[in-house]
Amino acid sequence: MTSDDIPRPGPQRAMRADVRRNRARLLAAAREMFERDGAGASLEAVARLAGVGIGTLYRHFPTRQDLLEALLADVYDGLAATGRELLVSPAPGEALTTWLRAFIVRITAFPGMAAAAAVSLRPEQPGRPEPSGARRAVRDAGEALFRRAQDAGDVPADAEFADALRLAGAIAMVTERDPEAADRLLALAAAGLAPGKGAHGG
């Protein structure tokens, strides 16, 4: 056995635990600050609330978008789980609308969150980093519901899931403080998606 094979002693493990704790504190502080002041809240104030220096914040989250995406990860995981549950619904079109409504509600937890989600969930492009597991999961779950609704004739055959997601994101951005308006706009959008029910329907 060489010296490289010998397990390292406790200090390195303790340091990793400190890193995890700092990250958790930063996320909790960011959530609190953003819910109070919106996604544009001072990052220095976030670091102070977490009890760490601003350098520590930037080591964990090099940009504000990185911090927002870390907060969105839990939202995406929840939406992916909701999507999987809705896949057994006997009404595919209603299941899709239910999921889109949940999407709008959950990405409007604080002002600016919807805009961050719109950036996060853009279709992959050359040169962009690989999407996180949470981002892939939420898109896969939503697209599965969309395709199922399409197969049932509840969504036009030539419609694209990416456009439905953009539409839901746009509704979220313009109704962050007005959930009733979000419901009305989503209902209007859903009526437009359903074949034969729009302005040019039979």
Score class of each variant (00 low, 15 high):
15 M>S: 08
15 M>L: 14
60 H>R: 15
60 H>P: 09
21 R>E: 08
182 A>G: 10
81 A>V: 08
122 R>F: 05
45 A>D: 11
1 M>A: 07
175 T>F: 11
71 L>N: 09
177 R>M: 11
186 L>M: 08
10 G>R: 10
145 L>R: 05
184 R>P: 00
59 R>N: 09
179 P>W: 13
130 E>G: 00
103 F>I: 01
181 A>N: 08
158 D>K: 05
191 A>L: 14
127 G>H: 10
54 I>C: 05
108 T>G: 13
103 F>N: 01
69 E>F: 01
78 G>D: 11
33 M>P: 00
101 R>H: 11
181 A>M: 12
181 A>H: 07
99 W>C: 01
170 A>D: 15
84 R>T: 02
42 S>N: 05
21 R>Y: 01
73 A>Q: 11
185 L>S: 12
137 A>W: 04
107 I>Q: 11
163 D>A: 12
61 F>N: 14
25 R>H: 09
26 L>W: 12
29 A>E: 09
40 G>P: 02
22 N>S: 12
26 L>C: 05
42 S>F: 04
86 L>R: 06
64 R>W: 07
164 A>V: 10
183 D>E: 13
132 S>H: 01
170 A>H: 15
95 A>E: 01
102 A>E: 11
100 L>R: 07
97 T>Q: 04
7 P>M: 14
179 P>Y: 14
99 W>T: 01
79 L>A: 03
11 P>W: 02
56 T>G: 03
106 R>F: 11
35 E>F: 00
128 R>V: 03
96 L>I: 06
116 A>V: 01
172 A>H: 07
45 A>T: 07
84 R>G: 00
111 P>W: 02
